[in-house]
């Protein structure tokens, strides 16, 4: 049971949570995630640890509403609790000893840059954060990220704020510009299509690129193998070997296909939840 200390919507479909979870806060590293469950009979879902405060004993999560379980999470408010929160799971993202690291975030993925940028700065590395969204209202956490990194780039598809275009296009420009703009390593977290575009952008540039994969998970502890991703032609368990993998080795086609394995049932669960909400409202 983890108490929600703070809950605020960031966009109409994403919500920020700060939870009391002292053991997880003490152990968390950038790149790791938690498994959570909101009710008896509920599903276990993986959520990235966006940030942690060891002294306060809290962790932050940003949840984007995409289906039944994330809708239940997003309905929670400060003062309420999350039934089960287990973590930190997965391996910490591998960080270089020196140089310039660029973190790229799309959608809820921008949130994970918070602890990543803070940790990189603590280690004395140069940092850039690129965050993207469809339009201005959907950009999240830019104000929180700005003081944590050397350079913040905001991108919107419609140009309503910052760079007009995709995060991958902005990254290509920085690489092109060379010098201090060019990162030595890229870490991307967000929708699969975005991570694939980032992988394509840095392929052949010699820039080490990691992506944080988000396959379907059941236990998150290496027990089911449902989270297999194909990396360098071999199956890897994202929950114990990852979730971060070499972007140029990941088979995105397989990963995207595998995430659709339960589409029909997910729709059924979503419709059922909506229907129950309606009935309650009446």
């Amino acid at each position: 049971m983890a108490q929600i200390l703070e809950a605020r919507p960031l966009t109409p479909v994403t919500k920020y949570f700060r939870l009391a979870a002292p053991l997880i806060a003490a152990a968390a590293q950038p790149g790791q995630f938690v498994m959570l469950r909101v009710r008896e009979g509920g599903e276990r879902i993986p959520i990235t640890i966006a940030d942690y405060d060891r002294a306060a004993g809290t962790i932050s999560l940003v949840v984007q509403q995409v289906g039944a379980t994330t809708s239940l999470v997003c309905a929670l408010e400060a003062g309420e609790s999350i039934l089960d929160v287990a973590g930190p799971l997965g391996m910490a993202v591998e960080l270089p000893a020196r140089g310039h690291v660029c973190g790229v975030g799309g959608g809820f993925g921008s949130a994970a840059l918070l602890c990543l940028m803070r940790e990189l700065r603590r280690r004395g590395l140069a940092t850039t954060a690129i965050v993207g969204a469809r339009t201005r209202e959907l950009v999240i956490l830019a104000d929180e990220l700005a003081p944590l990194c050397d350079r913040l780039e905001v991108c919107t598809d419609d140009g309503s704020t910052g760079f007009r275009g995709f995060v991958s296009q902005r990254l290509a420009q920085l690489i092109e510009a060379g010098g201090a703009s060019r990162p030595d390593q890229v870490i991307a977290i967000g929708p699969m299509a975005m991570m694939r575009a980032i992988a394509d952008t840095t392929r052949g540039t010699g820039i080490r690129t990691l992506v944080s994969m988000d396959p379907l998970m059941v236990d998150g502890t290496g027990m089911c193998g449902g989270c297999r991703v194909t990396v360098g032609g071999k199956p890897m368990f994202a929950c114990v070997d990852g979730p971060c993998f070499d972007a140029h080795e990941v088979d995105f086609d397989v990963a995207m296909r595998r995430n659709k394995a339960y589409q029909a049932q997910e729709r059924q669960a979503r419709d059922r939840l909506a229907c129950m909400a309606q009935r309650e409202a009446r």
Binding site: R39, G41, G42, E43, R44, A68, T69, V218, D219, M223, C224, G225, G226, Y262, Q265, E266, Q268, A269, R272
Partner: peptide
């Protein structure tokens, strides 16, 4: 899938009760 995944979905997560239970 592994038998562990299949059986975990059914036993631990009570997938046989889906959609009453949330795990498909």
């Amino acid at each position: 899938m592994s038998a562990n995944e299949f059986l975990t979905r059914v036993n631990l997560m009570r997938g046989f009760e889906f959609p009453e239970a949330d795990t498909p």
